[in-house]
Every structure is written in structure tokens, then in C-alpha cells.
Amino acid sequence: MHEMALAEELLKISDEAAASAGAEEVLRVRVGVGWLLQVERQSLAFYLEALRRDYPRLEHAVFELDEEAVRVRCRVCGEETEQAGWGFACGACGDRDVEVVAGDRLEVRDMEVRTDDV
């Protein structure tokens, strides 16, 4: 259910980025959905659709929701490895002393916009 709050933030960020670039219309927004956040992509897509009425620039935008896997950096051997499930451990040396370096964010990565000629 927190997908509603997250969708609202994604729309705000996309709209701000478009506005500050002087864009008239947003065509495409690429969103990275970190696995660690346990965001239900279908639900997020539903709320993006429902809430974007408040953002005229985003009316026809296509939202691409790309799942991002969790990656950890090992504090012992320094290797960075992708994780397939919970109970994170270094994929190289197996140590549990790891730090999450990817997959913990829900972010607007990049977007395609249309600007009118000046």
C-alpha cells in the first residue's frame, strides 16, 4: 500500500526534472525499482496511472519500471556481488559482513522529454 506514497514522489520528481529542463511533455520515464524495497510493481504502475492526472506534463508518459537486483560490497575481501535472496553474504568469500550498494533505492533514473523550439 505504500506504493501510493512512492508513486506520488516519483511523479513529483519527474515533473520537477521536466520543469527545470523547460520541457513541455514527458515521453518516457525510466524508474529503477530496488528489490530490497519490496515494491509491488503492478501496484506502483496502477498508482502512477491514477495520480498523474495532477501532472499535465506527464499525461502521456510511459513509465518503465526496471527491477534492480541487490548488490553488496564485502567489508572483508572488498568484492562486489549480486544477491539472489535474503541473508546477504559475499558471493566471493562468503563472509556476512557486507554493505548493500545497490537495490535499495526506488529512483527516477532518466527520462525523455519534448521541448518546444525557441
Binding site: L10, S14, A17, E107, V108, R114
Partner: peptide, 14 residues
């Protein structure tokens, strides 16, 4: 009459 632009954003919803 218009141009398409690619914007790098990288901002976190949180």
C-alpha cells in the same frame, strides 16, 4: 518545431 531531450535524473523516491 520541437526537440526530444534525454535527461539524467537519478533521484530517489524517498
Amino acid at each position: 518545431g520541437h526537440q526530444h531531450r534525454h535527461l539524467e535524473v537519478h533521484r530517489h523516491a524517498m
